[in-house]
Amino acid sequence: MEFPKDLRYSKTHEWIRYTEGKARIGISAFAVSAEQLGDITLVELPEVGQSFAANEPFGNIESVKSVSEIYAPFAGKVVAINAELDDSPELLNESPYEGGWLLEMEPDDAADMENLLDAAAYTALVASEA
């Protein structure tokens, strides 16, 4: 499985697109594949303005048969959420890196972005889990 090279990743399968002090966050195509979560049916996100520590759970993703927590990849504050997901959770399956983004956060420390995995490292991680 290949992953977009312009994104960063966490060990818990979130992807991060960082631009100008703001990071958009989603979950990877691997995480929503049929062997993992499968068809997503509900996304529960935090509210704008809430702050989270790195690796703190900030929401839930439900599929038909499972429910999984999603984790803040770095410390920061939520500045936007993807309201489309409320009515169309299937976007996570159909368009994990575009329409299926979850939320945007402002990192407390932009340097944390450097600690995230790049596509090659994430590909290796997925290979070891699959």
């Binding site: 049916t41 509900l42 439900e62 599929s63 038909v64 048969k65 499972s66 429910v67």
Partner: peptide, 8 residues
């Protein structure tokens, strides 16, 4: 059924 005990 994700609300229920056998999954959650």
């Amino acid at each position: 059924s994700t609300r229920e005990q056998h999954i959650r």
